[in-house]
Amino acid sequence: MSDLLYLYGIIQSQPSDSELIADQKGIDERKNLKLIPFGSISAVVCPVDREEYGEEEVEEKLKQPEWVKEKAFHHHETLLSLSGRTTLIPMKFCTLFKDEQNLEELIGKKRSEWESLLNRLAGKEEWNLKIYSHTAKMREDVESWNETVRLKKREIEGMSKGKQYIYRKKLEKTIDDEILRHQNHFASTLHESLLPFAQDNADKKIWQKDVTGRNEEMCLNKAYLIDTNQVEDFLATVDRSQTEDGWTFEVTGPWPAYHFVDKAGVVR
């Protein structure tokens, strides 16, 4: 039976292409990656066994966390190593074609769109910035220094027990709002200061504390698409903004341009 094709991504065709993927193992760890040129663009694929990567088989495998972890990492690692050396449109994990003819048919439909996307991505890198706020410390500060909060506290002290309870609850809410306002302000100010260096940006999910495994609270998580010659300025700006207490920044990159290829795949 013929193999299926696992598609990693699309790159611009160039003479030295074969060096890009020399001897790299594909997702099944047996067959090597290969490039299939379709004129100006090339597909980075690896053949996989139909018995192993058929529709039902993959549905089953996707329920196995260890498999997903290992293979998703392989997918990422392959894309990362390619994107470090050429412009790349990354595909979603587990994009599988029945045969080369289907892939060719798709490329035929998407060629002009993907060519312009590759042009748009050329010479740019995706970077990720996260900001964590030290909320416990901020709460202390708000309680001690915020004028409204201090006045309200004093007011509450003069109230009856029953009233105190209700107003304390209200005050808690005021403090929470104040913290949130402060976080949003800090995050959006920094974000805006970075916009001159970025061609585009995209929201990522704000992970909860338990997911990040950190004590601090995430208050910004964004991807930026940055011209390679502006990366240094972007990072310098981030670096300079880290002087204020109470915030931790986390910068990672360059990433494959995962967040800037939206809607590029739909075939109608």
Partner: peptide, 27 residues
């Protein structure tokens, strides 16, 4: 800098080009 696996999974499972249609094995 190290990256968190959750960021990788979030990116490769949720982002990247999604191809829909008869040409692909639909997952």
């Amino acid at each position: 800098n190290d990256v968190a696996l959750i960021d990788i999974l979030d990116a490769v499972l949720e982002k990247g080009v999604v191809i829909c249609g008869d040409l692909v094995i639909s997952i």
